[in-house]
Amino acid sequence: MLTSRQVKTSNRGRRSPMQVWKEHKGKYLLILPFAILFLVFTAIPVLTSIVISFTSFNMLEAPTFVGLRNYINLTVNDDVFLIAVKNTLFFALITGPVSYLMCFVFSWLINELSPKVRAVMTLVFYAPSISGNAYMIWKLIFSSDMYGYANAWMMKLGLASEPILFFDTKKYVFPILILVQLWLSLGVSFLAFIAGLQNVDKTLYEAGQIDGIRNRWQELWFITLPSMRPQLLFGAVMQITASLSVSQISLELAGFPSVEYSGHTILTHLHDYGFIRHEMGYASAIATILFFIMVFTNIIVQKVLRRVGA
């Protein structure tokens, strides 16, 4: 039997689209321009790619439907893809949380400076992101001959007797990529955190001191973090996508293919099939799998973040 309240809600559910439009017209009109552009330039291309992932498509002939074959090949037959997945997850597990923390800690540390000084300090930390492909400088540092900075210093200090071939030695490639990624990590989330910290209600700190907050750390946990939860959620999405989509630095620094696939990631695998072999069906399947890995990671991370400051 329905109670009166349930009747009411079920009535609400049956409202005609016209009624919904009338009630929320202003909101829909504000969203409309974006919605159209989003549909045309994001939603349709993404859905097309997902459809292509069920086909065999070499970009010359029309795609032919192959069902789940791309996905089965990827997960069962493609050993290199499994290496790529392993590398990517391991890479993200380290760089994701560390870079997220770095973004927060640095924005927090420079937050109290005066706006002009803070702007310059922000530029200093953001410099690797603003200077285009500045990460190429690492190629110079880890250059394989004795002129590379790392080799020169190590030989000077007697740590090495001959130059190390950094990008040709399996055990060095991965740690170097992690180092470079961390160096690049103060990007979008960092800027969002700085803006978010500015919006924390300053009076809460004063009130907090009365309420028994004794040090910076309590202030951080009980006031600052809860006050900027939306920015923290934003930053999490950014760091998840960034740390799982590493490819450019691997391609540029470790080369392709990297030695024994040591720098091989899901996206370099995609790059291989998309740009070199032109197998768009297979490449789209890789993108779709990566997409679900990110969505899944995001759900878990958002759950964890809801406990912050609680």
Partner: peptide, 17 residues
């Protein structure tokens, strides 16, 4: 949809685009 669209890699959408 907006959050999820940030997670789909641009490489394969370049062609439909």
């Amino acid at each position: 949809m907006i959050v999820y669209s940030l997670m789909f890699n641009g490489t394969v959408t370049a062609l439909p685009n």
